[in-house]
């Protein structure tokens, strides 16, 4: 006899849910933010004056368990300078159809040139389009940054660049 109302009690769950707020996230219209340290698309960072941080050492490519990164280093010259030191990454490709987002490349990077963003909307209908080139990975120029190649900030040493004591480039106009 006490079991008689059990089946009715089950409907209580359904009934109470009707008065709860829906938990659905309206993704395309209102996307919920990711976790702050979400492993999304990579980014190649710059120094405050616009020079690239990447030195083309290929440590990220060696650390990658999926062989998703391809780097070719190039030599900086006084006339054509992309990074403060001797070398820069002339070719930088990440194959996002291989990248598993583990972040070992970020750990391996000695100059903090490679970090990850929270951007995750990547899908394409061909495989070649999912290989991101350097121009797609480089961080956008912030105000005060000058697009390389350009010479180092006057008087700045390697240590200044390493410690971040470089000021944004003055407006040239």
């Amino acid at each position: 006899m006490p079991n008689m109302f059990d089946s009715v009690a089950g409907f209580g769950v359904t009934l109470s849910t009707m008065f709860k707020r829906p938990i659905t996230e309206g993704y395309p219209e209102s996307a919920a933010p990711t976790a702050p340290r979400y492993h999304g698309r990579h980014q190649l960072n710059r120094y405050p004056d616009g020079l690239e941080k990447c030195i083309g050492c290929e440590l990220c490519a060696w650390a990658c368990p999926a062989d998703a990164i391809y780097v070719e280093g190039g030599d900086n010259t006084e006339n054509e300078r992309y990074s403060p030191g001797e070398r820069y990454g002339s070719v930088y490709q990440i194959n996002y159809l291989r990248c598993i987002g583990c972040g070992l490349c970020v750990e391996a990077c000695p100059t903090r040139a490679l970090t990850m963003t929270n951007e995750y909307e990547m899908a394409d209908d061909n495989r070649a389009g999912m290989i991101y080139e350097k121009d797609q990975l480089l961080a956008p120029l912030q105000p005060g940054m000058q697009a390389p190649p350009h010479p180092r900030a006057p008087g700045a040493t390697d240590a200044d660049y390493y410690r971040g004591n470089v000021n944004p480039a003055p407006e040239v106009s």
Partner: peptide, 13 residues
């Protein structure tokens, strides 16, 4: 038709 990266891709992806 569509390649979707990610390991695994989150539901939004």
């Amino acid at each position: 038709d569509i390649y979707l990266p990610g390991c695994p891709p989150r539901p939004e992806m």
